[in-house]
Design a protein around this nucleic acid. Structure first.
Lengths: 203, 203
DNA sequence: ACCTGAACACCGTTCAAGT
DNA sequence: ACCTGAACACCGTTCAAGT
């Protein structure tokens, strides 16, 4: 715990970081304006100079989250050539790994009761950008014949849903409590990613 | 808005119903002890006679939710004979339809920050019971040769994840905002269920 | 421009007291 | 046994006032 953020008091950043730490620890419910202010070493009124309300903090973090997801997906897929099924699998794996590595972001990104009121458009744009990577990946696989040609719509939705669902079930706990699960999450995820790859690839 | 619940004042039930309506309207965050008491026409202390705290209300509703899910899944699948892939697809569809019909339950069931503290074991049991139906369904399909035999683990997890993810993405909004979606949710869901059925069945 | 501190209307939870 | 009403420590948000 450092002293007052030194001179160019980056209060805005301090507020965001404190928020992230709070969500990490106790879920979205644990993010309180006043606690955040305390951790950022300002009075409880100060954050309102940077964010109109609590939801705006969540929205800003959601946007950051989608950008980070896009970045990590790019890094994870770039070692596999376009059109290979391994690239598709890496795309799904990156999604799950993101959720494991940044549960706080993940919890915020998909919580529109907090993000949506007036549907902050920049959040939607960031989300669409992240999703584009999966769509392109599937398109390339179709072009190269790795995936059956035709309407990619159901393939995109189904595989997105599968990796998102896995992440959600993991973060929210039921997967851990129902007894389907002995292996570590990494292994579970790569099993699902490979299963999807098998299913979606033709042969 | 009725007057005070007449004589055998079923306060417990009134509290649960009011809670459900609040969650339906404004998400889990909108469920406040005091507002619930107001709607149940008792003072704010009364609910504590039936529930030790706010989380206990959520836990009770989560349990109800899983039981309802199991019931609706049984109804939805019973018209298809065991071992047919249509039964598997109906199982997935039932999951999504449940989410559409009872978003409030769905939002509560998978929110362990609220349900988990001390992991109410009856909630876990109800969840496991609901999940068993999918597992049995896949087992029957394997027995009848509709699905490739061998470890059912990845199939169970992947298909559960896909339907859960679809429901989550729908409820939480990103599916509606990203432009992948023109059709009504019913159609989207049956497309995903059929895609899964195709993938998972061998032919 | 940026921050403070008081103020307002809420909240969850506890508990003595009533019936 | 079931409920009330006051009490406590919190919360989000607003706003006049300071620098």
């Amino acid at each position: 715990m450092p002293k007052k953020p030194s001179r160019p008091r980056d209060v805005r950043r301090a507020v965001l970081d404190a928020s992230l730490r709070l969500v990490d620890k106790g879920g979205v419910g644990a993010l309180s304006m006043r606690e955040v202010a305390r951790r950022a070493r300002v009075t409880h009124g100060a954050p309102y100079h940077y964010f109109p309300d609590r939801a705006a903090i969540l929205a800003a973090l959601a946007e950051e989250g989608f950008e980070l997801l896009a970045k990590e997906t790019v890094v994870a897929t770039q070692e596999f050539p376009q059109g290979r099924i391994e690239r598709f699998e890496a795309c799904g794996l990156a999604y799950f790994r993101f959720a494991l590595k940044h549960p706080a972001y993940m919890r915020i990104m998909f919580r529109p009761e907090l993000v949506e009121p007036m549907s902050h458009p920049s959040v939607d744009a960031a989300a669409a950008r992240a999703m584009t990577l999966l769509i392109e990946c599937i398109g390339e696989c179709q072009a190269s014949g790795t995936i059956r040609k035709g309407d990619s719509h159901p393939i995109v939705v189904t595989s997105w849903a599968a990796m998102h669902g896995l992440a959600a079930l993991w973060l929210d706990g039921p997967l851990r409590r129902v007894g389907l699960f002995d292996e570590p999450p990494e292994q579970l995820a790569s099993a699902v990613a490979r299963t999807l790859g098998e299913w979606v690839g033709r042969t």
